[in-house]
Nucleic acid binder design. Structure first.
Lengths: 336, 336
DNA sequence: GCGGTCCATCAGCAATACTGATGACCATGG
DNA sequence: CCATGGTCATCAGTATTGCTGATGGACCGC
């Protein structure tokens, strides 16, 4: 009667599987039970949620899905959070890293941690952005490194899954990755709005997602010429070099150009700095505010020059502190 | 086993009531049932949640509370949202307004609506900030007007309760409200950081909440000399005039000074503009993205000069458009 | 039209979630 | 010092719920 989470869970499973029976198998129920679950939900809400044969959500069902996902996530997050409080912190850290959040600085911080506490078992897991956020909330990760494009000093926006603490790690300039043969290669800087009609590669987990560009520049456009689902920057660079489209990346990530100039040697990809709007690539570290043990150490090491602070203002999320400039990451990359 | 919302509901009720029996009465259960609910939760989570006699949450219980509130809210929001989709839109609008969001512009928009659609039954309800957000999410309000201090053009942050749409209505300069006898009265502008150690009135529902000041200026301080729980600006001005402390308000709200200068005639309150940090008072209109009927009209009228846009980027919340300058509100208030 | 697959429905059973009674505990006050 | 009125915990009993497993109708490919 109160929109039982169980029912929601089977609902989303059914939609994902596109099948009652398959969902039943996955959830360890009988098909009968699943059918009854859906019937109960539909009776409770007074509307059809699924069209059967083929199984697909109705309009109302679509809407319920938008609620059900975050709701179940938050539920899992709550359980995981109190579990963290009750069980002692293990001598183990699992760090989830979004592709563009993998920096030298993280490497150094990890090295320091392992030097300081050699017995701690450290795992680094490369993940997509949402996966990082989700797994930190649900306890699969002790620490997450998360990135995105924002105005300077503005925090990133996470889905609200409970009392998480986020702190800034780095802000870096953004650059457009162009194939070396592109006519715009010579430019000193590019305005994003001039590129709205260009060919873009949609790499939501690797580059700055096109949705963020649309939001920032308040236009539609930035239509994806190709979608890249990997979590690996090199793969994306290769696609850019092959002329499949542009991508917006933190300038250091476009190419580890050792000499002067902006052309990445042999990669066929060139970085041209973003001149407008004033956006930066920001990396934040995120963890439960109930974190303890080595993960807490690592978090403060990453956000070294900033004060630690617990949630204030909004209860759900601590304010992100102003970022420290990351000398390591900026080294050797001055615009030409 | 899956942290049944029923159990969470009784848990928060018990904490609020400070009593199992009282909570049972309120929820329509027997005391026995409530006792079993709590026991079930504690067994499920494997930790004591409440200290009995007197009844108070343990540390873990406190933590669970932080999750339970938003969770139940989101659950209610989901139910309300799909209810809005299924039932036809009524010829009725209920608008919730936070104290500082009550502007001439809203008055004008309401007038236009009533002229256009005389049969629509219009209700305006003055509420605190969280109440506005909550009731819009749970369907008690068709439309909410919400305010806060942010950097110019930055959206306000709402608790994430599902697919809501927010649009900017106004941005106004902020000013510190001082008693007329205050030594700083003559100043052309004030830096917030210089006032961290001043006496402040904490009026979270009326003025800019002190927590926001702390977050914006990244200091502790702004200790409340007195707390004001009303939702009425006049009451707050009176307290400021009596010297109980300062408050940060949108400049027009400090006093409707008709002549030149900044001293509000006879009120004993003086506005001195905030010179740093660069914060503005922003008003947004918020409603379900499933809104329809007269409420939708009113919403677009309020956000007149901006495009309407549905959620993009983050799935949960539409991006707030850049605000229009509100000539009406700014009239007659030029700094001296 | 026949086997296969799908979902809906029904009966039956087992687990659940209540109620109401009782008991332990702790105040307060005669 | 023991009564009294309050609290919450516990227990037995019962009504309801939520599952399984079987059956039946609808649809699809052959």
């Amino acid at each position: 009667m109160t929109m039982d989470p169980h029912l929601l869970r089977t609902f989303v499973t059914v939609v994902r599987c596109g099948s009652f029976s398959e969902a039943a198998r996955e959830l360890g129920y009988t098909q009968s039970a699943v059918s009854q679950h859906i019937a109960a939900l539909e009776a409770d809400l007074g509307a059809a949620l699924l069209r059967r044969r083929p199984v697909a959500p109705t309009g109302v069902g679509e809407r319920l899905l938008e609620h059900a996902g975050p709701l179940l996530l938050r539920l899992d997050a709550a359980r995981a959070d109190i579990a963290r409080l009750t069980t002692a912190p293990a001598a183990r850290v699992v760090v989830g890293v979004a592709p563009l959040a993998m920096t030298h600085r993280l490497g150094a911080a990890l090295a320091a941690l392992r030097r300081q506490q050699p017995l701690v078992e450290v795992t680094v897991r490369a993940l997509g952005r949402e996966a990082v956020a989700r797994d930190v909330a649900t306890g699969g990760l002790d620490l997450g490194l998360f990135d995105g494009a924002t105005a300077p000093h503005d925090p990133l926006h996470l889905a609200d899954t409970g009392p998480l603490t986020t702190r800034a790690v780095t802000e870096q300039p953004l650059a457009v990755a162009l194939p070396a043969t592109h006519p715009l290669v010579g430019r000193a800087g590019l305005r994003l709005s001039d590129l709205a009609d260009a060919q873009w590669i949609d790499a939501p987990d690797t580059a700055v997602p096109l949705a963020q560009l649309r939001a920032a520049s308040e236009t539609d456009g930035y239509r994806p010429a190709l979608r890249y689902d990997g979590t690996d920057v090199h793969g994306l660079r290769t696609l850019v070099a092959a002329g499949h489209g542009l991508a917006l990346l933190p300038r250091p990530a476009v190419g580890d150009v050792p000499g002067a100039g902006t052309a990445a040697a042999g990669l066929g990809v060139v970085a041209v700095p973003l001149s407008a709007p004033r956006l930066v690539h920001r990396i934040e570290v995120v963890h439960s505010s109930a974190v303890a043990g080595p993960a807490a150490l690592l978090a403060t090491a990453l956000a070294a020059d900033t004060r630690s602070k617990d949630p204030a203002g909004t209860p759900s999320r601590g304010p992100a502190e102003p970022p420290t400039e990351d000398a390591v990451e900026e080294r050797g990359v001055r615009a030409g």
